[in-house]
Simulated assay, not measured.
Amino acid sequence: MRTCSLKLYARCRRGVASGALTALLALAFATPAATAGEIHASVRDRDGKPVADAVVVATPAAGTASGSHAGVAEEDQRNKEFVPHVLPVQVGTRVSFPNNDNIRHHVYSFSPAKTFELPLYSGTPATPVLFDKPGVVILGCNIHDWMVGYIYVSESPHFAKTGADGKATLTGLPGGEYTLRVWHPQLEGSEQATARQLAVPSSGAVDAATTIGLVPDFRARRAPTPGRGGY
Rank of each mutant, 00 (worst) to 15 (best):
W146M: 07
A36H: 14
A195K: 08
R221L: 06
G230H: 10
R228S: 13
G135Y: 03
R219I: 05
G204C: 07
V86F: 06
A113T: 13
E117K: 08
Q77I: 09
V129D: 03
G230F: 06
V137M: 08
G71F: 04
A164R: 12
Q186T: 09
V206W: 01
E38F: 05
F218I: 12
L198Y: 03
P174H: 12
E81N: 09
L6G: 11
D45R: 01
G166T: 09
G175N: 12
D101I: 04
R196A: 09
G63E: 08
C4G: 04
A164I: 08
G15L: 11
A164C: 02
R219M: 04
T210W: 00
K7R: 13
L214A: 02
P112Y: 01
L27G: 15
G176N: 11
L21K: 13
T127V: 10
I103C: 11
G175P: 14
P84V: 08
P185W: 03
P226R: 13
G176E: 05
R13N: 11
P98M: 12
S42V: 08
W183C: 02
G135H: 05
A41M: 00
S96F: 02
S42E: 04
P216T: 14
K49W: 05
A160R: 01
Q197L: 04
G63Q: 09
A62I: 11
V91L: 04
L24K: 13
V57C: 00
P134T: 13
V148P: 02
E155R: 15
F97T: 11
E155I: 12
E155H: 14
N99Q: 06
T59S: 09
Y178M: 05
G163F: 08
L130R: 12
Q197W: 00
W146V: 10
V83S: 10
A34F: 07
V51L: 00
A168L: 05
A208L: 12
A65S: 10
L187H: 04
S154A: 14
E191T: 15
T59V: 13
S156T: 15
I143N: 15
G19A: 10
N99E: 02
R13W: 11
P216H: 08
V86L: 07
V57M: 02
Y121H: 13
V206T: 12
I151N: 03
L198H: 06
D76I: 07
S202L: 06
V56E: 00
Q197D: 02
Q186C: 06
D207S: 13
K49Q: 04
C141E: 00
G123R: 10
T210C: 02
G204K: 11
A164K: 15
V153I: 10
G230M: 05
A193K: 11
G176C: 09
A70Y: 06
V91P: 03
I151W: 03
H40W: 08
A113V: 12
A33M: 07
D145P: 06
V200E: 05
R181C: 00
A195S: 09
S42A: 08
R221T: 15
L180F: 07
Y152G: 01
A17L: 14
V95T: 14
L27E: 07
R14P: 02
D145I: 04
Y152M: 06
Y108D: 03
A26T: 14
E177G: 13
P174L: 03
T93G: 07
T211Q: 06
P60C: 06
N102Q: 10
G37H: 01
S156F: 10
T64P: 01
M147G: 07
